[in-house]
Nucleic acid binder design. Structure first.
Lengths: 162, 162
DNA sequence: CTCTGTGCAAACACTTTGCAGCTAA
DNA sequence: TTAGCTGCAAAGTGTTTGCACAGAG
């Protein structure tokens, strides 16, 4: 069972690498060994690693790579939509003393955070198929996009991947 | 209209300040002018300020306060549950190359992020009462709490504020 | 050949820590 | 009086930037 799983994983990684190369070329980005190595490391894990963690992983098979390159590559991946930042904006912490139930919308451009309150979001059900037996202390619905002013300036108009 | 609004705002701020003082005493925390000033600044705004922004605001009426105190106080507020960090974990960025629809659970203690996929969360409706005309590009449901292992070690057992 | 990408080092921004003096209780 | 809080300064961590060289197209 383990062997079979592994093989299909490898197969899928391979496919994704090829697709990624195509995507790079289409975007006018060069297919460098460093870039491939970083992307591969990210695809092979489900651990949502930090730049440092990716660096350590890639380093094992590519000792000459630098942390800066890893950082820049991860940035590039985010820009082209091949990866996402799932934690830590890199910006400073932001605080809120409003304890009433409410949700946040964040403008990706000007970083403004808008409060809103949508009743149904207060009542979302925690699913029963969570990975392991976890204790959920807080559940949040979070929207990102462009605010009124920023949408005007940018080329983005309609919905992307909604 | 403006005057009336303002007055009720002030009234509410006053009440919250009193409640906060009580809460501090109950928690064995001293009621210092700095602490009050920081809390007041946070209650009076809806802008989800950074520590630096709070510092600038408080400084206007309390010139001798230091940024460190603001930082520490905001930390304290988070700890006692009088405020939340709504952006920027302070930790490093974390990346994910999994583009399929899925959600995240984050353990507050060990910072581990677990993927899960709950169909209904993919289909949540963006509310129509958003503050201004915003373009929503991404919507996320995000759960926080304690993972299996960390829950064992901590005193927290049941649901808090769920 | 050309231009992007890389590696190195320095600069930056934000946060945390150690310590001496201050102050609320 | 005394435990906790504040302000200052220094150190730590993660990220960004400038520049010269290397390598992909």
């Amino acid at each position: 069972m383990r062997g079979k799983e592994r093989r299909s994983d490898k197969q899928e990684t391979k496919e994704r690498m090829t697709a990624f190369q195509t995507r790079c070329r289409e975007a006018g980005l060069k297919v460098t060994p460093q870039r491939m190595a970083v992307y591969k490391a990210l695809v092979e894990t489900t651990e949502h690693p930090s730049a440092e963690a990716v660096f350590q992983k890639v380093r094992r098979t590519f000792p000459s790579i630098s942390l800066d390159t890893v950082n820049r590559t991860l940035l590039t991946l985010s820009d082209m939509g091949a990866a996402f930042v799932v934690e830590g904006s890199g910006d400073a912490k932001r605080f809120d003393a409003n304890l009433c139930a409410h949700q946040h919308f964040k403008c990706l451009k000007c970083k403004k955070i808008l409060d809103f309150h949508h009743e149904p979001f207060d009542q979302i059900e925690v699913p029963t198929n969570l990975p392991s037996r976890v204790t959920v202390l807080r559940k949040t619905v979070y929207l990102e996009g462009l605010c009124d002013q920023c949408a005007k300036g940018s080329g983005i108009k309609g919905d992307l991947s909604l």
